[in-house]
Simulated assay, not measured.
Amino acid sequence: MESDPLSHRLYATHRNTLVSYARRLCGDKGIAEDLVHDAWLLFHRQNNAEILAPLSYLKTIIRNLLFDRRRRSTFESTTDAPFEQAIGNVEVTSASPERDVAARQIMSRVMDAIDAMPERQRKAIRMYHFDGMKLREIAQELDISVALVHKLIADGVKICMQIRKEEL
């Protein structure tokens, strides 16, 4: 491998600073040393003549290597672990049964409110929010202006949001 004076000088001059930086990020001196070494190897392989702030760039490489290491560690801890242990690492995102019931009740009230709206407004809201149609397509279908479609939908959404706020 060719000698690169800039990367060698940078490593020799700032090694302790970089190890200290990495240690603050990960909390372990051994891992910090590994991160700095791996970062320098990556930096050394690149054409670093174009890098304006090499020390900052090295710190970015160190931080990214640490993120990769953590991500890999989390993945590895779940792939070989028994199901019960792996499931403990998965974040629970579902709401409680009570919140599920409350959300369904709110949705039911919102759907009842939409059904009670004037026919043109009800159709516009359903076409836009449920069928995924664009405003101009709805305007064409209902034979009204795009501005009126927008107003019908906006007014309907205000009613739905008011119902939602009342329930919360």
Rank of each mutant, 00 (worst) to 15 (best):
D28H: 09
I138L: 01
M161L: 09
A81E: 00
V92N: 08
I125Y: 15
R126K: 12
S20A: 09
K151R: 11
L135R: 13
E50Y: 14
E2V: 08
G27E: 06
P82T: 15
E141T: 02
D131T: 05
D155R: 01
T79L: 14
K59N: 06
E98I: 05
G88N: 14
V90T: 12
N47W: 04
G156L: 14
G30Y: 06
L42Q: 15
D34P: 06
R45Q: 10
D34C: 08
E76G: 10
H129T: 07
K151Q: 11
I163Y: 10
K59S: 02
A81V: 05
Y11K: 00
D112L: 05
V101K: 07
L52S: 15
L10N: 01
V36P: 12
V101Y: 08
R63G: 02
S56Q: 13
A53M: 11
R164M: 13
E98L: 12
M117Q: 02
H8S: 06
M1N: 12
L65A: 14
A12V: 10
L135I: 09
R72K: 15
A154Q: 13
E167P: 03
V146A: 12
M111V: 05
M133D: 10
S145P: 04
I159Q: 10
R15G: 06
A102Q: 14
Q121Y: 04
A12T: 09
P82N: 14
D131N: 05
E76A: 11
L42P: 06
L41Q: 14
Q162W: 08
G27V: 02
N47G: 07
R45I: 02
R24E: 10
R122L: 03
R63Y: 01
T60Q: 13
Q85W: 07
G132M: 02
D115S: 04
L142Q: 03
M117R: 01
E2Y: 09
R126M: 07
P5K: 00
A53T: 13
D4G: 05
I62S: 02
M117T: 03
I159W: 03
D143R: 10
I62H: 00
K29D: 13
P54N: 10
L52Q: 15
S7I: 01
V19C: 01
Q162S: 13
D68C: 00
E98Y: 08
N64E: 05
V101A: 10
R122P: 00
E76W: 13
T93C: 12
M111D: 02
Y11D: 02
A95C: 05
M107P: 07
V90S: 05
L58E: 01
D115I: 03
D143K: 08
D4S: 04
Q121F: 03
L168Q: 15
T13W: 11
D34Q: 12
D28M: 09
A32E: 04
R45L: 09
K158M: 14
I106E: 11
K123A: 04
V146M: 06
L18R: 09
R23Q: 05
S108E: 01
E2T: 11
E141M: 00
R71A: 06
R122D: 06
K59I: 03
I87V: 11
A95D: 06
E167Y: 06
R45E: 11
I114L: 15
N47V: 08
D131E: 01
L18C: 15
M111P: 03
R120V: 00
K165Y: 03
H14G: 07
E50W: 13
T13S: 11
M111T: 00
A154T: 13
R104W: 12
D100F: 03
D112V: 08
M127S: 11
I61M: 11
A81F: 04
F43A: 04
I62M: 00
E84S: 07
R109G: 06
